[in-house]
Simulated scan of single mutants.
Amino acid sequence: MIQVKYPEMRKELEEHVRALADPAYQRRVWVEGKAEGSVRHDEFDYAVHFLYDDTKLASDAPSTVGWILKDASEAEHIAALVRSIDVVFAKYGTKHLGCGVH
C-alpha cells in the first residue's frame, strides 16, 4: 500500500472530493444547512480553501504526491477537478467566497 506523509490531510481531501461529487449532499448540507453525521457544519468554501489556500493541490497538484496524493494519476484527477471549479469561478466569480482564490 502506498503511504503519504500527511494521511489526515488526505482524509480531509477525500471528504471534500466526496462532497463536491454529490449534488444531493450539496443541497442538503450546503444549501439547506442540514448537518450530517459528526460534521456540525460544512460548506463549499471549505473545499475551496483546502484546495486553493491551505494546500498546493490547486496550483501544483503533482508536488503533493507523496505528501497528500499517492501518485501522478491522482494528481491528474485533482487537476481536472480544479479546472472544473475554475469554470464555475469564471462564470460566477469568487468574491462571495472571501478567499484568496485567483
Rank of each mutant, 00 (worst) to 15 (best):
Q3S: 13
V4E: 01
K5T: 11
K5A: 15
P7K: 03
P7N: 08
P7C: 07
E8L: 10
L13G: 06
E14R: 05
E14N: 07
E14H: 04
V17A: 11
R18P: 01
D22G: 01
D22V: 00
A24C: 03
R27Q: 12
R28S: 15
V29P: 00
W30H: 14
E36L: 12
S38F: 15
S38T: 13
R40L: 15
D42P: 10
D42Y: 15
E43H: 11
F44Y: 12
D45H: 04
D45K: 13
A47D: 03
A47W: 06
V48R: 02
V48T: 03
H49Y: 06
F50A: 02
L51I: 06
D53A: 10
T55P: 08
K56N: 13
K56V: 07
K56H: 12
L57W: 14
L57C: 11
A58W: 09
D60V: 09
D60C: 07
D60P: 04
A61I: 12
P62K: 13
S63C: 13
T64V: 00
V65G: 06
W67A: 09
L69W: 02
D71L: 04
E74H: 02
E74I: 02
E74T: 04
E76Y: 06
H77I: 02
A79K: 08
A79Y: 00
A80S: 14
L81R: 08
L81F: 08
V82I: 09
D86Y: 04
V87C: 09
K91Q: 15
K91A: 15
Y92P: 07
Y92S: 13
Y92G: 09
G93L: 05
K95H: 12
H96A: 15
L97V: 03
G98I: 01
C99D: 10
G100V: 03
H102N: 11
